[in-house]
Design a protein around this nucleic acid. Structure first.
Lengths: 342, 342
DNA sequence: GTTAGCACTCATCAATTGAGAGTGCTAATT
DNA sequence: AATTAGCACTCTCAATTGATGAGTGCTAAC
């Protein structure tokens, strides 16, 4: 167990390192406010903290730097919640100031503002479309053998696909198909559409449409294409200013990873609330020097999406957590009000 | 005017510098194949070329580097068209191999493949939506005071907006509105929609709809939001590997510019054919060490979009131009075949 | 238990050096 | 008159050195 003095020293080291990105030495530490003991004492304590794995040295005679374990302890036990400034609050409120409510615009703006406020990279995930329920399907012919299929979900998400029509299918057929689809598929979650098509729609198509097998195949093809999940970034380039990423190859790896959407979609599975992943906890080698703080937002009780801030492990945890907390609460309030009118 | 020997020297210097990124000295040049004169002669010629502005020195006793003027001359007069390898050709052909024709997918894939083939950054612009003609408008209510408006254009582009409905507007009103809109606006270029709404639709709304003024205002609001032009990037991070961009701040400026879409939309105004912009010809300070090669693609005679490759001024002009030429011809052929069936 | 003191380590910076690649100029060669 | 060999000179780059300073660990004194 850590003594009070060790906790204090750990906290001050982490705070200082977060601010300066420089290893913290015993002498400079001893001069800090609130530190009443000498540098020698601090050295002894530091040695103990290092042995326990909370601190590290960059080379034999450098100051100490927090280890991942150190950050983890700091986040779990030593974090003093930061009070947001009036400016922070007003900037966040400004996101919701616009009159026309366009969900996509809101989360896009959120990504921008969160990265500006933190100077880190922000990632905002929209509601998982695959869980949305279908509201309406339309098929709009463009010319004699191409058409656009449009799917609208209950949250207002619009998905569209181009399809090629069999030569023998005419306008009245399409009308019939669209009617069947809407009748059978309205209210069905997007992820179940493919199933339903085969189970329920196939039979009806057979009864009413000449080229039912070709059409069935075409429709199924359309639904195979994964839906475009809404996803916005802010401040991708902020990482370039961090001293820990002065190395071109590191930056390259990191930015390349950021652009890959696989790991991001995993964020959707996060439980409600705020989560902090530090360094290797992210399980991605290019992100070993990064921390990721995620929060969720909801409408009523239903979790809709996720907001994340990506920064160096030397991240302002306290500030970012406060910002995310405040932002997610605000966004949830707005969305709850909006959707309860349904 | 330049002598044949000066032309030869200029060409070899540019070729060599493109390959190595190292200043070219007279001695190493004299050993090159096809060079039959001594290093001293070359030094004299180099001095002349420098005086005329085709070459530069990085410092007093370094080798020579092509100047912008040098590159310009090289591109305009010395370029030997590069023959594409079988591999290049088959990779490009593979873009069009898929059966389902989804335009967006094709240009997205094109961006990826062009950046892989060149190791530069590729930018692919879809057809200018604002010139598309409206095919169909739909308004789909989500709940009692929100709805989604969907616009489909003749090229199959789908644009959607969320709108809030005045309380007094009911389903039958919406149906009427949609009918009026479709009757009056089908075939109208997207960029003229706003005009037409006021000129023609306003009157009709007044006759048939109670809340015509609110609805008119809402509709006009919707059309004010700029359309989302299709735009895809490939290999943004390729620039990080170029020796000329080893400097973090340069990279930061460049990547930040790339992400801004203003300058890219200007590319739409390009005339048909291939264009090369070298360094400061781009009129963007962060791109002073970059060249941009653009090509257009069409369907039949109608220009649809633009493809661009962004690389360092020390770019493999010959290869990139050949690739773009081949690619744009192929894409145009595919699109022409597709749209002539209308 | 705490701290002063000291020997020691290591990074960083500036100055120095030598090698190498390159130039410009001049004088000799063709 | 054009070309080239030769040479002095310039500049970069990498390696070396030494001084400085921030830091540590340990020991002995408080």
């Amino acid at each position: 167990m850590l003594t009070d003095r060790q906790l204090l020293i750990l906290q001050v080291i982490v705070d200082d390192f977060i601010r300066s990105a420089q290893p913290v030495g015993s002498r400079s530490l001893s001069k800090k406010e609130g530190i009443t003991f000498s540098s020698a004492t601090i050295r002894n304590e530091m040695a103990d903290l290092e042995e326990m794995g909370y601190l590290e040295k960059t080379h034999t005679s450098s100051g100490r730097v927090p280890s991942e374990k150190g950050y983890r302890y700091y986040v779990d036990h030593l974090l003093s919640p930061q009070v947001l400034t009036k400016h922070d609050i007003s900037v966040i409120k400004s996101i919701f100031a616009e009159k026309i409510f366009e969900f996509e615009k809101i989360i896009q703006k959120s990504a921008k503002i969160l990265s500006d406020l933190t100077n880190y990279t922000s990632i905002v995930l929209g509601p998982a479309v695959s869980e949305n329920k279908l509201k309406k399907i339309q098929i709009i012919p463009l010319n004699k053998d191409t058409a656009v299929a449009i799917f609208v979900t209950d949250t207002g998400h619009v998905e569209n696909r181009t399809l090629s029509l069999p030569a023998s299918v005419d306008a009245s057929d399409i009308e019939k198909i669209v009617n069947i689809l809407n009748e059978r598929l309205t209210g069905v979650p997007v992820e179940d559409l493919n199933d339903k098509i085969y189970k329920e729609v196939a039979v009806l198509l057979k009864q009413h449409i000449h080229e039912h097998d070709v059409m069935l195949h075409t429709l199924a093809q359309l639904l195979k294409v994964p839906v475009t999940e809404k996803l916005f970034f802010g401040g991708k380039m902020n990482m370039l200013s961090m001293p820990e990423f002065h190395d071109i190859t590191k930056i390259r790896n990191l930015l390349t990873i950021i652009d890959q959407e696989e790991w991001i979609s995993n964020l959707r599975n996060n439980a409600k609330g705020i989560h902090v992943k530090i360094g290797s906890e992210n399980n991605i080698s290019a992100m070993e020097e990064c921390s990721l703080i995620t929060a969720t937002y909801s409408a009523g009780d239903e979790k809709l999406g996720t907001i994340a801030i990506l920064g160096p492990t030397r991240m302002e945890y306290s500030r970012v957590i406060s910002l995310l907390q405040f932002f997610s609460r605000d966004l949830t309030a707005v969305l709850t009000k909006l959707y309860q009118s349904e």
